[in-house]
Nucleic acid binder design. Structure first.
Lengths: 216, 216, 216, 216
DNA sequence: TATGAATGAGGGTTCATTCAT
DNA sequence: GATGAATGAACCCTCATTCAT
């Protein structure tokens, strides 16, 4: 399956750029894996290089230092932070939300770098900017979804959308693993229900599910 | 010239134990201040000792290492994490909650170690345990408050209290500073309202404020 | 766009050897320029190659290492060290010497490698030999000039020509820039006068300038 | 002979400050020895520490880096650069100068750092300043000696003292080792004679030695 | 006990040199 | 030949920890 072996007689190479790209990616993946496993400060450039199967010096061909690798890593992976679009207008918002949450929590969990970042933020404003930007995008995405729902007259009419988006983000952003001792199957349903109660007045929820029932 | 040498046969002001205790405290406070300002990894034992006005070696008489100082520090300060008791039963739960939130956010903000901790957790399970324990206490406190309210029939009747407590904790634990660009005066009110909507059905909120009005 | 590719069936302008020679020269010139600007130790092979417009590896086709390039460089440029022939017999030796000095100081100054070499000498006897050889040639040139003047009976009759040549070399070799704060226009004249006093007894100087006056 | 062993029962220490000073000195001496032997760039901080019998880190307690050790070293040793006071007024200036030269050349030779410095000067202006200052002191010392002789009417009356001092400095500063192949016993005498010819008109030299003869 | 000088392993980074393409 | 990515030994420097005083 290796890209290096095709036909007879070996053509053992990718064009230069691709090979370099591959190496760069290997370093990013190694950085990711090791930051994830051991934390950022505890991981050395040497280790990352070794894990990627290249020499120490090669690390510095692709990245000016460890920090810059982290930045690249984040830019590559930051999409993971974005929650999926939430369809508030669906006939059954609780279920829809629950399934969105499940997908998102899994992605977040898979992207295990959240706990690596906080200490760095205070001393690295560029990094902070990258993350802050990601956060703003999440917030905006939630905000816009809610706004559409609001325009249809579905939400509470005295909502502060900014605060609400933020609160949802807080819930969405923090994995379930914190209290994972319980890990009950209905967790996503329960969270979805809570969030819906912040968003919709009860009558809307009833109405929506009635539509749902009729539609069946 | 030392404080310890005056006249003959001087009495040290504090019994030995107390003086040692004072030194220990000075180290903890210095550690706290420096971790806060520069981050945990960026702070050296020497700096902490210097800041506390003792010699480097003295640090190691009181703490086996930097990590252990952090643990002690947390045990001293962890109370700050605990939100104040929330009086869900108050006649005006939104206002009561808003004011509790404000107090708590301020305390959390003042305790600036939150951003120092996460990376350490992954490699130090003992530390994780300390924090997890704090978290459990917060959760329990919220949980119990809600339970009492539930027993009075005030809350939604299909609540999963565990999940709800957790969601409130997520909102409560994460400072407002994240989206601090807005920083509107009504922020606490808005958050409190959202939380109350997760907890109480509308009619209860109406009822409670009616009581409130009548009481006046 | 390369110079090598124009039309079909292009003739390379230079035979292979010449092109190689050109590359070699480019490397030497680049080495010279960079050693001059940044010092020997501070200049990397990569930089020299880049400055010469060739790949790093190409450097090592032409020179076994950086040191060897320096040697070649010196062999190319060492002529600059040689002071111009000094015409002691001229009717006005002071003026003649002054003008020779001016020319030589300028050449020495333009060849800015003097400050690069000394440290290398102690650890590289081959390099030391190259420079020592250059020095011997300078010494010999001065020595022979003086000898001719001596044979005409013009110099002090108790001169040790070896020592005198050496002393002149010391003065000639070290630029004026050391005490350049003064930088007076008469500097070369003054030095020339001093040197002439080491070489000629006063009466010869008088005699020579008398001839000079008569000749006019 | 060690300072550590006196009497019975060992009193194995110097007061703290002295021990620190001793260590600092050991480092300076080691730096000196190694710079001398291998050159500045070729000597590592680790080596200096090892040679001084201390750990690498100890080096950095006493010096911020290698460069700073060099500066201290120079400040310690720079006196060696200063030639001894030259007594131009002595009855036999050639002999007096010859003996001064011999002393100075030996000192210079013993202080083998001259060849270490030049490359550094171009990139380290602080270091350049230290050396420039030393040079100025040498120049001033020679200058003043000459001035006194001039005031007594002993020297050529059309001397530019600045240039003359500089020329003498060039001769004095550069060891004999350059052309050391010859190394004849009369070398100092010969040089002294040359210098005296730059300074004194012949009649003064004659006069002075006549005085000398009479005094005997 | 308190001190702070000393330790030395280990981190980040550079660069002369090689070698597959 | 020419290329330039890759190598890895070696550099500089830091700092957690020890220990003689």
């Amino acid at each position: 399956m290796s890209d290096d072996e095709k036909l007879v007689g070996e053509f053992p190479f990718l064009p230069k750029q691709e090979r370099a790209q591959a190496k760069r990616n290997a370093l990013i993946e190694s950085g990711y894996a090791l930051f994830h496993k051991k934390g950022y400060e505890q991981t050395t450039a040497k280790e990352i290089a070794a894990h990627a199967g290249v020499a120490t010096g090669t690390f510095y061909r692709y990245f000016s230092d460890k920090r810059q690798l982290l930045m690249s890593l984040l830019e590559d992976k930051i999409e993971t932070f974005l929650p999926p679009e939430i369809s508030w207008l669906s006939s059954n918002p609780v279920d829809a939300l629950a399934s969105s949450l499940e997908i998102h929590y899994n992605r977040i969990h898979e992207f295990g770098l959240r706990h690596v970042l906080p200490e760095l933020l205070s001393k690295d404003s560029e990094l902070a900017a990258v993350l802050d930007n990601a956060r703003k995008r999440i917030h905006a995405r939630i905000f816009n979804g809610l706004k559409k729902a609001g325009e249809k007259g579905l939400t509470w009419d005295d909502l502060d959308l900014d605060t609400l988006s933020w609160a949802i983000m807080m819930i969405v952003e923090n994995g379930l693993d914190k209290t994972s001792q319980s890990e009950k199957p209905s967790a996503y349903q329960d969270i979805a229900k809570l969030i819906c109660r912040m968003v919709f007045p009860p009558r809307v929820l009833v109405q929506l599910s009635k539509n749902d029932a009729e539609a069946e």
